[in-house]
């Protein structure tokens, strides 16, 4: 399994647009994420990482890296590491997952994210026009 590290940005409100089936969220921020019910999170219990069915946030500690290999994640194919401007741990977390060969992505939360706003009013009108030309609208 190759560890793919890539980065995107989103907002706490629209994070569901980033998450795909098979993703687990590792939230390094104190922000509440607008996820759908049942989204798996990585939390901490007894000083170790574990997979939780409930939202969790992590104050990352270096020794957590030791428990990555013990994480049981049968249906998870990617970890989405959520960070923001006030959180500086994302790169060390990313290195820890990379060292374990676990595919992951860093998603930086912003107040406003260009990628989320890709379909602004002008874009929507442009798409609508293209769909009209093909008879959809």
């Amino acid at each position: 399994m190759s560890a793919i590290t890539s980065e995107c940005c989103s907002t706490a409100a629209s994070i569901t647009e980033v998450l795909l089936g098979g993703d687990a969220v590792l939230n390094l921020t104190p922000q509440t994420l607008n996820v759908v019910h049942g989204t798996p999170f990585i939390g901490v219990a007894d000083g170790r990482l574990w997979l939780s069915a409930k939202p969790a946030a992590i104050d990352w500690q270096p020794h957590f890296a030791d428990s990555i290999r013990q994480l049981t994640m049968p249906d998870i194919s990617r970890i989405v590491i959520i960070t923001d401007a006030a959180t500086g741990d994302a790169s060390s977390v990313s290195r820890a997952f990379a060292a374990s060969g676990i595919p992951h992505m860093i998603c930086v939360l912003r107040d406003v994210c260009d990628a989320d706003a890709f379909m602004d009013e002008a874009d929507a009108e442009a798409v609508a026009e293209r769909l009209r030309q093909l008879g959809y609208l």
Binding site: E17, V18, L20, G21, P103
Partner: peptide, 18 residues
């Protein structure tokens, strides 16, 4: 009214598999 896009596609395309 929203327009579907890569962000509304909620299953992984084959190239996104590990």
């Amino acid at each position: 009214l929203g327009f579907t896009s890569s962000r509304t596609l909620r299953a992984k395309p084959f190239w996104a598999e590990a």
